[in-house]
């Protein structure tokens, strides 16, 4: 007995068993890990069909690129994160589904994102400021961060006299505006009722100014001004509204007014980085498995028992 206790192997095995006991008694501990809850609101207005992204040496539309990047992002998000999806067009957005846990509902979210189409738009205008306000208003009560993905192309352009007032939601909403598109203006594709492309929007196809309410200019400077019949003058408006580029300064301004962050979408990496913003994360207590540590200790001790020793007695030749 005495000799058994003197043997280091006995002690190794005993300690290993104690380690296993610890393993079964304390298998996990509570750990704070950041989890994310996003509601992606995707702009599906026509300007999102403009093709100014490159993917595999092929020009792809903004919408396609957004969908592709979001689907890749879905794979990169840690489990326990939640993702909801909504669409924006006209002056408001609609929610397709409330945030779902990404690991258990991966296929469902992935399919739904893949099916997003510009033809789902229920109306054709694009008033981003109002849409953003209504979205923030709609999701104010939820604890999800609004990720508003748009190119900033207002159609028709906003009259500076009638700007959206974000003071009611400022500071309460958390989220981010993601700008998509290139900085160079490109034409917007035009489709027929069957979804086939029939060229591009031309100068005469789109309104180049809003003719709602009163002009922001001094009446004396408007040619052909008539307070009742021609508040915007008699001249036809001209502009480049048929071309579309990412309106970064405008979106940055909206972001500042509504208290959201702004970033530009260039790829998965930059989106993933931007979304890991600690402001958008919520610390959640998650049970983490810590059985590895005692198991590793036990393994080490067990190996020590069977470690080959250098031969003590040499054979004499």
């Amino acid at each position: 007995m005495n000799k058994t206790l003197k043997d280091y192997r006995t002690w190794c095995l005993l300690l290993a068993l104690i380690a296993m006991l610890v393993l079964f008694l304390y298998p996990s501990k509570q750990q704070k890990t950041p989890t994310y809850n996003y509601t992606f609101i995707i702009d599906i207005t026509r300007s999102m069909n403009a093709t100014d992204y490159q993917q595999d040496n092929e020009a792809v539309s903004r919408l396609h690129f957004v969908k592709q990047t979001l689907r890749e992002l879905l794979r990169a998000l840690p489990c326990e994160s939640k993702v909801g999806l909504g669409l924006f067009t006209e002056r408001r957005s609609t929610l397709l589904f409330e945030p779902l846990e990404v690991c258990s509902a991966y296929t469902e979210i992935d399919t739904a994102i893949g099916k997003v189409d510009w033809r789902m738009a229920w109306a054709a205008d694009s008033n981003i400021a109002k849409g953003l306000l209504s979205t923030l208003d709609m999701l104010q009560k939820s604890d999800s961060s609004v990720i508003f993905i748009t190119d900033g192309q207002e159609a028709p352009p906003v009259n500076p006299n009638y700007q959206t007032d974000f003071s009611s939601v400022k500071g309460q909403a958390k989220g981010m505006i993601i700008g998509v598109g290139g900085l160079q203006a490109v034409p917007i594709p035009k489709f027929d009722s069957l979804g086939k492309q029939t060229g591009f929007y031309s100068h005469d196809d789109v309104p180049h100014r809003s003719s709602f309410g009163q002009s922001n200019l001094d009446p004396s400077q408007i040619k052909g001004y008539n307070a009742r019949n021609a508040p915007f003058g008699s001249e036809a408006a001209t502009g480049n509204e048929h071309l579309s580029a990412l309106q970064e300064t405008y979106l940055e301004k909206l972001a500042a007014e509504s208290g959201l962050a702004y970033t530009r979408l260039t790829g998965l990496q930059n989106l993933n980085q931007a979304l890991q913003n600690p402001k958008l994360a919520t610390e959640k207590l998650v049970q983490t498995d810590i059985r590895r540590q005692p198991a590793l200790f036990a393994l080490l001790l067990l190996c020590l028992v069977y470690l080959p020793k250098p031969p003590k007695y040499r054979l004499l030749s």
Binding site: F97, T107, E108, A112, V116, D117, R119, M120, W122, A123
Partner: peptide, 11 residues
């Protein structure tokens, strides 16, 4: 509504 919305596949 005015246009169809794909929301959730058969699951």
């Amino acid at each position: 509504s005015t246009s169809p919305l794909f929301v959730m596949p058969l699951t």
